[in-house]
């Protein structure tokens, strides 16, 4: 496994640009082809089982994607950072498996029903709203970045659209939950 997953600096910049534009193809091409190597590394280094190594690397993939989008990963030694994160994720996983009783009223846990309603409410949003809400709340873009990305006229316009879309999501969510 090479230091930067075989990417040149230009390719890395393209990867960041494409991810920020919502195109995940290159990211998937690069990182999924290295998935097994990372798993093997975790299995060898931590004596992890196949299933645990898979889960740890999968969690790392999700986190790494976000970090790249937010400009927190730099070209240099991505492999080191990735494997370090995977190791930490494995240790976290191991700790959680060792806890005999998981907290039943976990503050951050959502039940399947709520997530199902969210999916339905999400599908009823227009494409623009989905882009704004996902960009702001999930990908972590600032209003300024979103304004540039979506070719809006001003940050204020983006903020207004975000509020409108959130209101729409909230209302649909509420209506569906009362059905």
């Amino acid at each position: 496994m090479k230091n930067n997953f075989g990417l040149s600096k230009e390719e890395f910049n393209q990867l960041v640009g494409q991810l920020q534009q919502g195109n995940e193809r290159l990211f998937e091409q690069i990182f999924l082809s290295h998935f097994e190597l990372c798993m093997n590394y975790i299995q060898n280094q931590c004596n992890a089982s196949y299933d645990d190594a898979y889960e740890a690397v999968m969690d790392t993939l999700v986190q790494f994607r976000k970090r790249i989008i937010q400009g927190k990963v730099h070209y240099g030694n991505m492999r080191y950072l990735f494997t370090l994160m995977a190791k930490q994720n494995y240790l976290k996983l191991e700790q959680s498996l060792n806890k005999e009783v998981m907290s039943a009223d976990d503050e951050t846990a959502f039940d399947e029903e709520t997530l199902g309603l969210l999916d339905k409410a999400w599908e009823q949003l227009c494409n623009n709203c989905q882009q704004v809400l996902r960009g702001y709340y999930y990908d972590g873009f600032t209003l300024k970045q979103l304004t540039q990305r979506l070719n809006h006229t001003s940050n204020a316009a983006t903020r207004k659209q975000k509020e409108r879309c959130l209101k729409k999501l909230r209302n649909t969510f509420f209506t569906l939950s009362n059905k």
Partner: peptide, 15 residues
């Protein structure tokens, strides 16, 4: 809350 909800939803979709 929205961040948490979206994180669960989209992380799951990615995975």
């Amino acid at each position: 809350l929205i961040k948490q909800l979206f994180e669960v939803k989209f992380d799951k979709e990615h995975k």
